[in-house]
């Protein structure tokens, strides 16, 4: 053992309950943000119907991919709902490009929680993440739809 003068005084490692309490308090502090997101998501879900959604698509694959990405980013909820809506949009003749963009941006983007994301993770991070996710979502939607068309 090294001499007592050289030995650094170590703080005792906090116990798991202490860490859990600290984590729970940090989470509790974010409750107003989370509740506001949930409230707005709930409002959006009862406002946007599949019929209203399909009316925003024009039939042009290119612009529909853009519209699909935007509408998926605005809409929020369980991914299963996006599959149901996507299936319904496909049945109404909306292109696979647009539907892919819609179901993908549903889970990768979220306009409703943008302000909260910026508050928690910083404006610059939120800007970089969302702008890059927006373009990559369109790219992924186009590439996967193109692959399906090429293979079937």
């Amino acid at each position: 053992m090294a001499g007592p003068e050289k030995e650094k005084r170590k703080l005792p490692k906090p116990s798991f309950p202490q860490i859990l309490k600290k984590t729970s308090l940090a989470f509790l502090a974010m409750i107003p943000m989370l509740v506001s997101i949930i409230g707005l998501v709930g409002l959006l879900q009862v406002t946007v119907s599949p019929e209203r959604l399909s009316s925003v698509f024009s039939g042009n694959a290119l612009t529909d991919t853009l519209v699909g990405t935007l509408s998926g980013a605005v809409a929020q909820g369980n991914p299963v709902v996006s599959y149901l809506l996507g299936g319904e949009l496909l049945a109404q003749g909306i292109s696979l490009y647009a539907v892919s963009a819609f179901i993908l941006s549903w889970v990768t983007l979220g306009f409703i929680h943008l302000p909260v994301e910026a508050e928690v993770l910083g404006f610059r991070f939120t800007l970089y993440r969302n702008v890059s996710a927006f373009f990559i979502t369109m790219l992924v939607a186009v590439l996967s739809s193109f692959t399906v068309q090429a293979l079937t």
Binding site: L96, S100, R129, V140
Partner: peptide, 24 residues
């Protein structure tokens, strides 16, 4: 809903897209 080929290709491009976004 969308078929096996769509699901596989979408999943593959999502993973590729995630790496690309990380790089960007």
């Amino acid at each position: 809903y969308f078929g096996l080929i769509f699901t596989l290709s979408l999943s593959f491009f999502i993973l590729t897209g995630a790496l690309l976004q990380g790089w960007i």
